[in-house]
């Protein structure tokens, strides 16, 4: 069983409000911001490791990003992944989800044989959830999104897929691509030994020369969407503090709710 997990390095949740915009290029300035593995991608890594522990096989983590994304890959190695590959090239900058999924697809083609591709359900910076299905399309794979539980047999996968107020159980043949939610598991912490070992491990870096890329499909040129404006949302007005003794406050609150026709 060979499982490929696509991971993205994102700004730490705590730092999301500090991310600045380059107003000339309308891209995100990530310098000086603490980075983490996208939280849902950690669930994807964890699930891959559990499958490997149960069924045997190998886990490859793949990321596209600037050189510093190596950090995220190293952490995945420390968790127990076997191999890490970074797709990095200046010409990849400014990729939207179409260009990103194309580049990742070409990376996966170069990797070769695999049984399963796992991704997080969405990245917490762009919040699009589009790279998974896009990648499945480029690779012509069946996709199952929002997966919260899986059951694997030798050639088939059965999954619980979360919907708004319900879920469905679906089944498909391998190879397949899945995006996972945080319900699926609790990611492990890397052990100290894992961290030390990962420090020394080699991370394979592929540039655009290493991949048989169509230049018109990558980076800004390969991205149909253009960000034309970025702004901060209006912050809601501060309201009023209800004061007095507790029963008095409760009465005030109830009468406000009635005025607003909520109760």
């Amino acid at each position: 069983m060979h499982i490929i997990v696509c991971i993205k390095q994102v700004p730490d949740t705590e730092e999301l409000s500090k991310v600045r915009i380059n107003s000339r290029t309308n891209t995100l300035v990530r310098e000086g911001i603490k980075s983490i593995i996208n939280p849902f991608d950690e669930n994807a890594i964890e699930e891959a490791l559990r499958i490997k522990e149960r069924h045997g096989g190998k886990v490859t983590v793949l990321s596209m990003g600037p050189p510093q994304a190596e950090e995220a890959l190293r952490r995945a190695l420390a968790m127990g992944a076997d191999k890490a590959i970074l797709l990095s090239d200046r010409s990849f900058a400014g990729s939207d989800t179409l260009a990103t999924s194309y580049t990742l697809a070409m990376g996966i083609r170069k990797i070769g044989e695999f049984d399963l591709v796992l991704l997080g359900k969405q990245a917490i910076d762009g919040d699009t959830a589009q790279v998974g299905p896009g990648l499945a399309e480029w690779l012509n794979l069946p996709q199952i999104t929002y997966v919260r539980r899986i059951e694997l047999s030798s050639s088939k996968i059965k999954a619980e897929r979360s919907l708004e107020d319900s879920f469905e159980i679906v089944e498909t043949n391998l190879p397949a691509l899945l995006t996972v939610t945080k319900e699926i598991n609790t990611p492990r912490y890397p052990s100290l030994r894992g961290l030390l070992k990962a420090k020394k491990e080699k991370i394979t870096v592929w540039t655009s020369k290493d991949l048989a890329l169509d230049k018109e499909r990558i980076g800004l040129d390969g991205s149909p969407t253009q960000v034309v404006k970025i702004f901060t949302p209006e912050s809601p007005k501060r309201g009023k503090i209800l004061t007095g003794e507790i029963p008095e406050i409760a009465d005030k609150l109830i009468s406000e709710m009635k005025k607003r026709k909520i109760i």
């Binding site: 989800t97 959830a129 896009g134 399309e137 996709q143 999104t145 919907l163 969407t225």
Partner: peptide
């Protein structure tokens, strides 16, 4: 931008090689 729309839209947009804006 539902569990159905977010599953289907990116697959369609990628097959058509066109832009898709999420949510």
């Amino acid at each position: 931008a539902t569990s159905t729309g977010r599953d289907l839209a990116p697959r369609v947009a990628t097959r058509l090689k066109t832009g898709l804006t999420a949510d």
